[in-house]
Amino acid sequence: MGEQEALELRIEIDGSHVASWVDLETAIVLMEAKDARSEAAEAKGATLWRDAVRVDLEDSSARFPVQWVDFGATRGFPQKAAWYLDWDPHQPDSSVLGGMRLYLNSGHTELKKATEGAEKHVRRMWQRIRLDVARQMMVGALQSREFMEDPGAFGGDTVGAIVRRLLGSVFSHRSPSAVRDLLATNPGRFEAQLQASLGYVEAGTEAGGAE
Protein backbone atom coordinates (compact mmCIF):
# COMPACT_ATOMS: atom_id res chain seq x y z
CA MET A 1 0.00 0.00 0.00
CA GLY A 2 1.32 3.45 -0.87
CA GLU A 3 1.28 6.44 1.41
CA GLN A 4 -2.07 8.18 1.79
CA GLU A 5 -2.19 11.86 0.95
CA ALA A 6 -4.94 14.29 1.88
CA LEU A 7 -6.43 16.18 -1.04
CA GLU A 8 -8.42 19.39 -0.60
CA LEU A 9 -10.79 20.46 -3.36
CA ARG A 10 -12.29 23.94 -3.60
CA ILE A 11 -14.98 25.12 -5.97
CA GLU A 12 -16.68 28.45 -6.58
CA ILE A 13 -20.31 28.58 -7.69
CA ASP A 14 -21.97 31.61 -9.25
CA GLY A 15 -24.71 32.61 -6.81
CA SER A 16 -27.05 33.49 -9.68
CA HIS A 17 -27.13 29.81 -10.68
CA VAL A 18 -28.31 28.39 -7.36
CA ALA A 19 -31.29 28.82 -5.08
CA SER A 20 -32.28 26.75 -2.05
CA TRP A 21 -29.61 24.04 -2.11
CA VAL A 22 -26.60 22.59 -3.92
CA ASP A 23 -26.09 18.87 -4.56
CA LEU A 24 -22.39 17.96 -4.39
CA GLU A 25 -21.30 14.63 -5.83
CA THR A 26 -17.73 13.31 -5.55
CA ALA A 27 -16.47 10.31 -7.49
CA ILE A 28 -13.20 8.47 -8.09
CA VAL A 29 -13.03 7.26 -11.68
CA LEU A 30 -10.45 4.86 -13.11
CA MET A 31 -8.54 6.67 -15.84
CA GLU A 32 -6.30 3.75 -16.82
CA ALA A 33 -7.44 0.14 -17.02
CA LYS A 34 -5.65 -2.46 -14.93
CA ASP A 35 -4.11 -5.64 -16.30
CA ALA A 36 -7.01 -7.69 -17.60
CA ARG A 37 -5.38 -10.80 -16.14
CA SER A 38 -5.76 -9.42 -12.62
CA GLU A 39 -8.71 -10.58 -10.51
CA ALA A 40 -9.24 -6.95 -9.51
CA ALA A 41 -9.39 -5.77 -13.10
CA GLU A 42 -11.62 -2.75 -13.77
CA ALA A 43 -12.64 -1.20 -17.06
CA LYS A 44 -11.36 2.25 -17.94
CA GLY A 45 -13.89 4.85 -16.81
CA ALA A 46 -15.29 2.65 -14.04
CA THR A 47 -16.45 4.46 -10.89
CA LEU A 48 -14.48 3.14 -7.92
CA TRP A 49 -16.10 5.32 -5.27
CA ARG A 50 -18.92 7.83 -5.12
CA ASP A 51 -20.36 10.10 -2.44
CA ALA A 52 -23.13 12.71 -2.56
CA VAL A 53 -24.30 15.37 -0.14
CA ARG A 54 -26.91 18.15 -0.28
CA VAL A 55 -25.93 21.53 1.17
CA ASP A 56 -28.84 23.75 2.20
CA LEU A 57 -28.22 27.39 1.33
CA GLU A 58 -31.25 28.75 3.14
CA ASP A 59 -32.57 28.28 6.62
CA SER A 60 -35.56 25.98 6.16
CA SER A 61 -37.40 27.93 8.85
CA ALA A 62 -37.27 30.98 6.56
CA ARG A 63 -39.48 29.33 3.96
CA PHE A 64 -43.13 30.22 3.98
CA PRO A 65 -46.15 28.65 2.26
CA VAL A 66 -46.51 29.07 -1.50
CA GLN A 67 -49.91 28.62 -3.09
CA TRP A 68 -51.22 28.75 -6.65
CA VAL A 69 -54.45 30.77 -6.96
CA ASP A 70 -56.40 32.10 -9.94
CA PHE A 71 -56.28 35.82 -9.18
CA GLY A 72 -59.09 36.51 -11.65
CA ALA A 73 -61.42 34.26 -9.67
CA THR A 74 -60.28 35.41 -6.22
CA ARG A 75 -61.76 38.52 -4.67
CA GLY A 76 -59.24 41.16 -3.64
CA PHE A 77 -56.39 39.87 -5.84
CA PRO A 78 -55.11 42.06 -8.73
CA GLN A 79 -56.10 39.99 -11.76
CA LYS A 80 -53.02 40.75 -13.89
CA ALA A 81 -50.40 40.40 -11.14
CA ALA A 82 -48.07 37.39 -11.37
CA TRP A 83 -47.58 36.95 -7.63
CA TYR A 84 -48.62 38.48 -4.33
CA LEU A 85 -46.78 38.33 -0.99
CA ASP A 86 -49.36 38.41 1.79
CA TRP A 87 -47.81 39.61 5.06
CA ASP A 88 -47.94 42.42 7.61
CA PRO A 89 -44.59 44.19 8.20
CA HIS A 90 -46.07 45.74 11.35
CA GLN A 91 -46.27 42.32 13.01
CA PRO A 92 -42.62 41.22 13.06
CA ASP A 93 -43.26 38.93 16.03
CA SER A 94 -45.61 36.69 14.03
CA SER A 95 -44.36 33.29 12.85
CA VAL A 96 -43.18 32.89 9.27
CA LEU A 97 -45.44 29.91 8.60
CA GLY A 98 -48.48 31.64 10.01
CA GLY A 99 -47.76 35.23 9.04
CA MET A 100 -46.56 35.00 5.44
CA ARG A 101 -47.85 33.40 2.27
CA LEU A 102 -46.76 33.80 -1.35
CA TYR A 103 -49.60 33.49 -3.85
CA LEU A 104 -48.78 32.67 -7.49
CA ASN A 105 -51.34 33.52 -10.15
CA SER A 106 -52.40 30.35 -11.96
CA GLY A 107 -54.23 32.54 -14.47
CA HIS A 108 -51.06 34.42 -15.47
CA THR A 109 -50.05 32.97 -18.85
CA GLU A 110 -46.39 34.02 -18.80
CA LEU A 111 -45.85 32.82 -15.24
CA LYS A 112 -47.35 29.42 -16.04
CA LYS A 113 -45.16 29.13 -19.13
CA ALA A 114 -42.08 29.94 -17.07
CA THR A 115 -42.85 27.28 -14.47
CA GLU A 116 -43.56 24.62 -17.08
CA GLY A 117 -40.64 25.42 -19.38
CA ALA A 118 -36.98 24.45 -19.47
CA GLU A 119 -35.15 24.08 -16.16
CA LYS A 120 -33.05 27.20 -16.68
CA HIS A 121 -36.18 29.30 -17.22
CA VAL A 122 -37.84 27.87 -14.12
CA ARG A 123 -34.72 28.60 -12.08
CA ARG A 124 -34.48 32.17 -13.34
CA MET A 125 -38.17 32.77 -12.71
CA TRP A 126 -37.81 31.68 -9.09
CA GLN A 127 -34.71 33.84 -8.78
CA ARG A 128 -36.71 36.84 -9.95
CA ILE A 129 -39.51 36.10 -7.48
CA ARG A 130 -36.93 35.66 -4.71
CA LEU A 131 -35.40 39.05 -5.50
CA ASP A 132 -38.79 40.75 -5.46
CA VAL A 133 -39.90 39.05 -2.24
CA ALA A 134 -36.63 39.97 -0.51
CA ARG A 135 -37.09 43.60 -1.60
CA GLN A 136 -40.65 43.69 -0.26
CA MET A 137 -39.63 42.16 3.06
CA MET A 138 -36.69 44.49 3.64
CA VAL A 139 -38.43 47.68 2.54
CA GLY A 140 -41.54 46.81 4.55
CA ALA A 141 -39.56 46.04 7.71
CA LEU A 142 -37.35 49.13 7.39
CA GLN A 143 -40.49 51.27 7.27
CA SER A 144 -42.07 49.44 10.21
CA ARG A 145 -41.78 51.14 13.60
CA GLU A 146 -42.47 47.81 15.32
CA PHE A 147 -39.42 46.23 13.69
CA MET A 148 -37.04 49.20 13.79
CA GLU A 149 -37.54 49.88 17.51
CA ASP A 150 -35.45 46.79 18.29
CA PRO A 151 -34.55 44.55 15.31
CA GLY A 152 -32.58 42.22 17.58
CA ALA A 153 -35.57 41.42 19.77
CA PHE A 154 -37.05 38.87 17.39
CA GLY A 155 -35.89 35.28 17.46
CA GLY A 156 -36.81 31.81 16.32
CA ASP A 157 -39.00 31.54 13.24
CA THR A 158 -40.52 35.00 13.50
CA VAL A 159 -40.85 37.35 10.56
CA GLY A 160 -38.61 39.87 12.32
CA ALA A 161 -35.80 37.35 12.76
CA ILE A 162 -35.95 36.30 9.12
CA VAL A 163 -35.85 39.91 7.90
CA ARG A 164 -32.96 40.71 10.24
CA ARG A 165 -30.94 37.78 8.87
CA LEU A 166 -31.81 38.81 5.33
CA LEU A 167 -30.62 42.37 5.98
CA GLY A 168 -27.42 41.02 7.51
CA SER A 169 -26.81 38.84 4.47
CA VAL A 170 -27.35 41.57 1.88
CA PHE A 171 -25.94 44.51 3.86
CA SER A 172 -23.38 42.75 6.04
CA HIS A 173 -21.51 45.90 7.08
CA ARG A 174 -24.53 48.08 7.87
CA SER A 175 -26.94 48.16 10.79
CA PRO A 176 -30.70 48.11 10.06
CA SER A 177 -30.81 51.85 10.83
CA ALA A 178 -27.99 52.50 8.36
CA VAL A 179 -29.79 50.43 5.70
CA ARG A 180 -32.98 52.43 6.32
CA ASP A 181 -31.03 55.66 5.81
CA LEU A 182 -29.53 54.26 2.61
CA LEU A 183 -32.98 53.38 1.30
CA ALA A 184 -34.23 56.90 2.06
CA THR A 185 -31.25 58.82 0.66
CA ASN A 186 -29.95 56.57 -2.10
CA PRO A 187 -32.57 54.01 -3.21
CA GLY A 188 -30.58 53.25 -6.35
CA ARG A 189 -27.61 52.09 -4.29
CA PHE A 190 -29.96 50.02 -2.12
CA GLU A 191 -31.34 48.29 -5.22
CA ALA A 192 -27.88 47.72 -6.70
CA GLN A 193 -26.66 46.05 -3.51
CA LEU A 194 -29.75 43.86 -3.46
CA GLN A 195 -29.09 42.74 -7.03
CA ALA A 196 -25.40 42.15 -6.31
CA SER A 197 -26.19 39.90 -3.35
CA LEU A 198 -29.19 37.97 -4.64
CA GLY A 199 -28.57 38.02 -8.38
CA TYR A 200 -29.98 40.07 -11.24
CA VAL A 201 -32.45 38.67 -13.77
CA GLU A 202 -33.13 40.60 -16.96
CA ALA A 203 -36.61 42.03 -17.21
CA GLY A 204 -38.72 40.29 -19.81
CA THR A 205 -36.94 36.95 -19.42
CA GLU A 206 -39.69 35.61 -17.21
CA ALA A 207 -42.91 36.92 -15.78
CA GLY A 208 -42.61 39.89 -13.49
CA GLY A 209 -44.57 41.11 -10.51
CA ALA A 210 -47.27 42.48 -12.77
CA GLU A 211 -48.27 42.07 -16.36
Results as ranks from 00 to 15, higher is better:
Q91N: 10
A118L: 11
G98W: 03
L111H: 04
Q127T: 10
R128Y: 12
R101E: 03
H90N: 15
L85M: 07
W126A: 09
L131Y: 11
Y84E: 10
A118K: 15
I129D: 00
E119D: 13
R123W: 04
L131M: 12
H121N: 14
E116D: 14
P89N: 02
E116P: 05
A82H: 05
S94P: 08
K80G: 09
K112Y: 11
K112I: 12
A118H: 13
T115G: 13
L85V: 06
L111C: 04
A81F: 03
R130N: 14
S106T: 10
A114Y: 08
Q91V: 09
H108Y: 05
E110S: 12
K113C: 07
W83I: 04
V96E: 03
Q91Y: 02
G98N: 06
V122N: 07
L104P: 02
A82Q: 08
R123D: 06
L97E: 08
A118Q: 15
G99C: 04
W87I: 07
L104F: 05
T109F: 08
P89Y: 00
P92M: 00
S95V: 00
V122L: 10
G98L: 01
D93R: 08
T109E: 14
G99W: 03
Q91T: 13
D88T: 10
K113H: 14
L111K: 03
G99V: 07
R101V: 06
L97W: 01
Q127P: 02
Q127C: 06
K120R: 13
Q91H: 10
L97F: 00
I129S: 00
H90Y: 05
Q127W: 07
P92N: 03
D93P: 04
T115L: 15
M100G: 08
S95M: 00
E116V: 09
G117S: 15
V96W: 02
W87N: 05
V122C: 08
L85G: 06
V96C: 01
V96P: 04
A82T: 12
V96T: 07
Y103V: 06
H121M: 13
R130Y: 11
K80W: 14
K112T: 15
E110Y: 08
R128L: 13
S95L: 00
N105Y: 01
M100I: 12
R124I: 05
R124K: 14
D86I: 11
H90M: 10
S94G: 13
H108F: 02
E116A: 13
S106L: 03
Y84G: 03
A118I: 10
M125V: 06
D88M: 04
G117N: 12
K80T: 15
Y103M: 08
Y103R: 08
V96I: 12
W83S: 08
K112L: 12
D88L: 05
S94C: 11
E110Q: 14
K80E: 14
L131H: 15
V122S: 05
D86Y: 12
A82W: 04
A81Q: 06
A114R: 10
